[in-house]
Design a binder for these strands. Sequence first.
DNA 1: TAGATTGTTAATCGATTAACAATC
DNA 2: TAGATTGTTAATCGATTAACAATC
Lengths: 207, 207
Amino acid sequence: MKIQKIPEASIMRLSVYSRHLAHLDQMGIVTTSSGEIAEGVGVSSAQVRKDLAYFGEFGTRGVGYNVKDLHHHILKILGLNNEWPIILIGAGNLGTALCLYRGFNERGFRIAGVFDNDIKKQGQMVGEITILPMEKLEQVIEEYEVKMGIVAVPSSFAQEIVNLMVKYGIKAIFNFAPRALSVPDDVELRNVDLAVNLEVLTFKLSI
Amino acid sequence: MKIQKIPEASIMRLSVYSRHLAHLDQMGIVTTSSGEIAEGVGVSSAQVRKDLAYFGEFGTRGVGYNVKDLHHHILKILGLNNEWPIILIGAGNLGTALCLYRGFNERGFRIAGVFDNDIKKQGQMVGEITILPMEKLEQVIEEYEVKMGIVAVPSSFAQEIVNLMVKYGIKAIFNFAPRALSVPDDVELRNVDLAVNLEVLTFKLSI
DNA sequence: TAGATTGTTAATCGATTAACAATC
DNA sequence: TAGATTGTTAATCGATTAACAATC
């Protein structure tokens, strides 16, 4: 769709802007500016305008931006104008927490299924969702037309699980296992390593 | 200590290299090269050498790197040569999961205390740790000489909690609340917004 | 010596910022 | 019109990569 290369950091900031706009909207504020948004989220106003410029012109010179309109535009850009069914693999501590985590639900992500290899866990409930065996993966992905999945399994199983997900049609994977994973070119992969984040902090404290 | 500016991305990669080196070591491999590490973790070999060059010369030209030595050097650079006591604020779903999460423990992070405002939670156990009231925060930080803390509370409380942590001497904060927080210059702050990561994926799927 | 791999420099690439014309 | 703020261009900054001398 877009020819110009859009920095991933811009996308992440758009997501942050959208939260700020929701907040402004809740407070009944109708108009805002790149400077106000910038201050609110901790970036430069030029950055805000540049991030938006990748996608169009959403403001009025001399006036600013309409809060509701801009919010709506950004949600549309991010593909958040409708809900996303997701699957979650791994019902350990992290998996269970992610399943119960409100932050995903608030942004329109709906958990279509939670899966675990462990027979003892299968059939148990996490909140209102039943933990399913991996054998049900294909069925759930097809039934709910799931395109995204979260991997919260031990590192040693991660690649195997990802292969299965890809096989059954998952196109975007959010991985918490601290292991380099390989996926086909048409599958998006995003890794967050929680311990690495703490280690950046220990480095800074050690300087 | 260092005059040259070191990219934060380099620090994060060092952490990833150290995991790979631990893996090589476990397999009994004695010597490695920038090329091997690069392939193992998915970056370029020039990148590996550059990241290491910020901190010294750890290899032998024509030969490569000693796995154990390099591993040890990187852990030292990251400040991981001894354990770090940490506190965790918020014993909700996410907080509980982080408390039980093995990944932190494996890398030498020890939870010195878990805190929650909710009277019903206080006294309950998370694994082997008792949830404490916020009133105990100062005492625990002092007793265990804690410098790092994780924030896993609702966004609306995050700034207030962070202020308390800073007041009692915390110098590095890992924040999961999706809200811009302000801390003094001598306090390191790191944010990870889980929903933002999913939203980068929805964006890519929507293109 | 020939082959291999490091450490480092210079070139390239990409992202952020400053500045300003456009325009409400 | 005067003041304000956008959208966009050009300048700056910083990180990655390519290339190669050093050297085992």
